[in-house]
């Protein structure tokens, strides 16, 4: 019965026009970023390299390849995607309560746990499809527009360079990690959705939580650095970037296929899984005992 409900939930998701707003929004943002970088790519790179341009020759044209543009697109876009995920996941339960159709579902021979898990799985599939769409546009679109090459990622304190043949697997791993991060958002939006009777509340609440924790994280105030940030899911949601940080050997050159501090990524992944488990447990617990009044 679970898979029947899952199919129904997916059918409903993809029959709603608002679902395609997200896909459209992503396409627009990706194309805009790609166009901007096509025109002003050098300026964008100079943001990171300016202080070193006296000491090193900076091969701007080579840095500005499809892989670099894809990372830049993901960097800019993945901060905003939680809104698009909340738009669907935040509406999963409360939207039906608002429409009255939750009564229909609640009076059918399906358990509420099955219903919540099917809705969550449908949201997860939506997240994955959204990311696949993003991958197609951002990765393959950028490769088409800018070509392939070695990837350089500029961090706050260092530059990480990877050989072109050592990049694609990192993108796939990053997309998988981003799915996990966005699924955490979907789980949180669904949790709010279970507590609400209207669609807007959970969407706004989810976006607010993400914004507040992102600001707290960016402030880098010692008080938060040692208390909230190590456990804040927004800290760990950035884990996808970790796949583009390479380890270097004693001679200073990078090791192909390496990841800098892989255990930090494992820890982040586990923390995100923990959040998903927590949010879903609260959702199931509350929804099972909830009186469907609307």
């Amino acid at each position: 019965m679970f898979f029947t409900i899952l199919r129904i939930e997916l059918f409903k998701i993809f029959k709603r026009p608002r679902t395609y707003i997200s896909f459209g929004a992503i396409a627009v943002i990706v194309i805009l970023v790609q166009l901007a970088l096509k025109v002003n790519g050098k300026d964008f790179i100079e943001l990171y390299t300016d202080s070193q341009s006296d000491t090193f020759e900076i091969p701007y044209n080579k840095i500005l390849n499809g892989y670099f543009v894809c990372v830049a697109v993901l960097h800019m876009i993945l901060i905003h995607v939680p809104l698009l995920v909340a738009l669907i996941a935040g509406d999963m339960i409360s939207g039906e309560a608002n429409l009255g159709t939750l009564r229909l579902l609640g009076s059918k021979p399906i358990t509420r746990t099955e219903l919540v898990l099917a809705k969550f799985s449908a949201s997860t599939i939506y997240v994955i499809l959204l990311l696949v769409w993003m991958a197609v546009l951002a990765l393959f679109g950028s490769i088409l527009l800018f070509g392939q090459g070695d990837l350089v990622v500029f961090k706050e304190m260092d530059w990480h360079q990877m050989n072109s043949y050592d990049v694609l697997w990192r993108f796939f791993a990053a997309f998988i990690f981003a799915s996990l991060a966005l699924t955490t958002i979907a789980a949180m939006a669904m949790m709010f959705s279970a507590f609400s009777e209207n669609s807007l509340g959970p969407i706004v609440a989810t976006v607010c939580v993400v914004i507040v924790f992102t600001i707290v994280q960016q402030l880098k105030v010692p008080l938060f650095e040692h208390t909230i940030n190590p456990w804040s899911f927004t800290t760990h949601m950035l884990g996808w970037k970790g796949f583009f940080y390479v380890e270097k050997a004693a001679d200073g050159t990078t090791i192909d296929g390496s990841i800098e501090r892989p255990m930090a990524l494992v820890r982040s992944g586990l923390i995100l899984l923990g959040y998903i488990g927590l949010f879903m447990s609260i959702t199931v617990w509350h929804f099972r005992k909830k009186d469907i009044l609307n």
Partner: peptide, 25 residues
């Protein structure tokens, strides 16, 4: 050869904190 310090202003790169930067400082 001599190199200059490299450090971006906070917030530009919004990095994933894997703990490595603390040692680099």
């Amino acid at each position: 050869f001599n190199t200059k310090d490299y450090k971006l202003p906070k917030g530009i790169s919004l990095d994933f904190d894997n703990g490595a930067d603390k040692d680099k400082a």
